[in-house]
Design a protein around this nucleic acid. Sequence first.
DNA 1: CTCAAATCTTAACATAGATCAATTGTTTCA
DNA 2: TGAAACAATTGATCTATGTTAAGATTTGAG
Lengths: 210, 210
Amino acid sequence: MTCARWIANPSYFYYMNDIYDPLLNYISNRIKVTEQDCLLIKDAFTPKSLDKKELLFEQGEVCTTTSFILKGSMRVFYLDKKGLEHVLYFGFPDWWVSDIGSFYQHTPSVLTGQALEKTELLVSTYEKMEELFAEVPRLERLFRIISQKNLAALQQRFLSTVSETADQRYLKLLKRAPNIEQLVPQHQIASYLGILPESFSRLKRQLHSK
Amino acid sequence: MTCARWIANPSYFYYMNDIYDPLLNYISNRIKVTEQDCLLIKDAFTPKSLDKKELLFEQGEVCTTTSFILKGSMRVFYLDKKGLEHVLYFGFPDWWVSDIGSFYQHTPSVLTGQALEKTELLVSTYEKMEELFAEVPRLERLFRIISQKNLAALQQRFLSTVSETADQRYLKLLKRAPNIEQLVPQHQIASYLGILPESFSRLKRQLHSK
DNA sequence: CTCAAATCTTAACATAGATCAATTGTTTCA
DNA sequence: TGAAACAATTGATCTATGTTAAGATTTGAG
C-alpha cells in the first residue's frame, strides 16, 4: 500500500499525531512512496527543537545536517567581512534548511542557520541521506526537482537584485509573501532585500507618502 | 561492461571520434553507466550547431531544451525592462545550458541563451530527458548533484553581489577564471559582474593605477 | 512591572556605480 | 579596402543606497 492510499484511508487519523507526518505528507504529495519507504524515511530523520536565536549550523563549521521544518521559522544568513549579515532565505514549515555547499562537499559552511523563534525540525545527516537515496531511489528524483526549483527561484532573485531597485524588490516580495512583515522583524526583511535597515525605513516612508 | 571500463579498454580509441564522446565521458566520469545506458543517452541527444550570435532559447518562449556544450561558448542573459542585459552565466565545453525554470515548469523563459561564437551542442528535450531518467535512474542522481552544485555556486555569487564591491568581484572572477578576458568581450564581463561597461572600464583603470 | 536590550525612525553627509555624451579604437563584411 | 557597426575609454553629473549618529519605540527577561 502506498503512502498516498494510506493517507486517504480513514485509519490515517490513527497516525495523525505522529511527528513525522508533515514530512511523510510532504514527500508522498510529490512522489509515490510505499509504507516500507516511509519507515526508512522516518529512520533517517531525528526530531530536534531549537529555542529562539539558537543555531542549527554555523559559518566556518561543516554543515553535516539537512533539516525539514515542522513548526516555527528560521533564517539562513551570511556574515560578511564587515560584520554585516545578509539573509539568503527564510524557512517556514515544509521547507528544507542547510548549507547545501557545505553539506555535499564537506567544506566549512559559509552560512549560518538560526531559529527566529522556537522551532521544531526533523534532522538528517549526509550519511543517512545517501543511505536513504540508495534505499529509496525515487527520493533522488524528489531532491533533484527541489534543487532545480530552488535554483530557478534563486536565479530570479539574483536577476531581480542586479536589475531592480530595492523598492521594486520590496513590492515583489509583498506580493509573494503578503504576511512576511508579521512573520519576521523588519531589519531581517531589509537584509533579505539586500539593503540596510535605515534604507528600508526610508524606502517604506517614501512608498507610503505616494 | 560499464562505460568506465570500456573507456579504459584500448578499443576505446576506435570510438574516439564519435561526437557523443565528450558527453559520455562527462557522464561516465561522474556515475557508473553501462554500454546500454550509453546507447540510451545517445538516443536522447541530437547534435546542433549555432553560428555566432545565434539564439538557443529566447526570453518569452518556453525553453524546451537542455543542451551540453561540445565546442564554443555561450552566454545566458536576462533582458530587463530598461533594455539592459544581465549575464547570468557563460557556458563552455562540458557545461549545460538551459532556462531551468522554463524547462521544468513549461513557463515562458526569463532567459536568453546565445552563442558567443560558432558553437556545437548536444540538445535534448524535456520529454526525452524524463524518458532517460526513467530508463537510467542513476542519471537522476547525476542531475541532482549538478543542480545542487549549481545552487551552491549561485548562492556564493548572490552573496558576493550583495556584500562586495564590483572590484572585489572582478578580482575573484580573475582568480577563478584567469583567461576569461580572452574568452569573452569586456562588456560581457561587466554584465556578468553586475555593472555597466563604463563602470568596468573605470574600475580597471583604477586597479591598474595601483 | 520595570528596565535594559533590541528595534525602528529620522537626518545629514558620503560614495559606488549609473547616466549621458563625446571620442577613439576595432571588427566586419559588402 | 573602406564604411558602418561595434567596443572601449573618459569626463561631468546624478542617484540609490551606505554611513554615522541620535532619539523614539517596542519587547522580553527577571
